[in-house]
Amino acid sequence: MTLASSPLAGEAAGTVVSLQNVSKTFSNATVALKDMSLSIRQGEFVSLLGPSGCGKSTALRIVAGLSSPSAGRLVWPGERPGQKDHDISFVFQEPTLMPWATVFANVHLPLKLKGESARVARDRVMEALEMVGLEGFAESYPRELSGGMKMRVSIARALVTKPKLLLMDEPFAALDEITRFRLNNDLLRLWEEFGWTVVFVTHSVFESVYLSNRIVIMAARPGRVVADLDVDAPYPRGEEFRTSHLYSDHCRRASDALQAAMAGEAPDA
């Protein structure tokens, strides 16, 4: 276990993005993040794990540029200064599809907004749908799909731009366990194949251990990073990993760190 927040980490090679002493105070005086530092390295699968209200979503939204830090900086080392377009995709807890549009049109959306017509983008959209196993549902409407399939569409939409950084905010929290396991495996397969960088918010210790090679544990009031664990387990991970000693050891470590984080919280938590 290494303690987080070395302020210089942002300058290290291979860093995609780093939060440097970022704080966020909302207008209602909620301190959602205080002095949070975190570097996301190229190719990592990082889980942000922490109790409800510790600022996981807030941190993710700041990385996505959907919210601005009250203090501190967000640094994108590999990019020219002032660049607006960061090549990010975001997957929300809900599928967040446009109900009036077909699966194809939903996945096409990010490309359309960049000015690529359906004809030009067709192959890429179909490719993204194939990645999530939904190539046969291009002309379906979201309401005709199950919850798990909708989530797949949402993931396909995030992948269609081939993003450098994939941000996921509890993407599978609303799904049943069987579907969640299946999507976990799909996500891992795609991640291994394409080598993106993923930041994955979850409140499940088991999910974070299963998926990631690094777990960042946060505590609330104020939201901050309290532990940064590496999960040294080889990929590909499958169902046998879920039942291995290695898995349960990592789960215990993460769980202990989480307990410690919550024990240190203010009593009103």
């Binding site: 939204r61 996505a64 959907l66 607006k84 377009d85 995709s89 975001f90 929300f92 907004l113 731009t161």
Partner: peptide, 9 residues
Amino acid sequence: LRNLFQLYG
């Protein structure tokens, strides 16, 4: 969805 539109510029 609005956030998504914002994210994609």
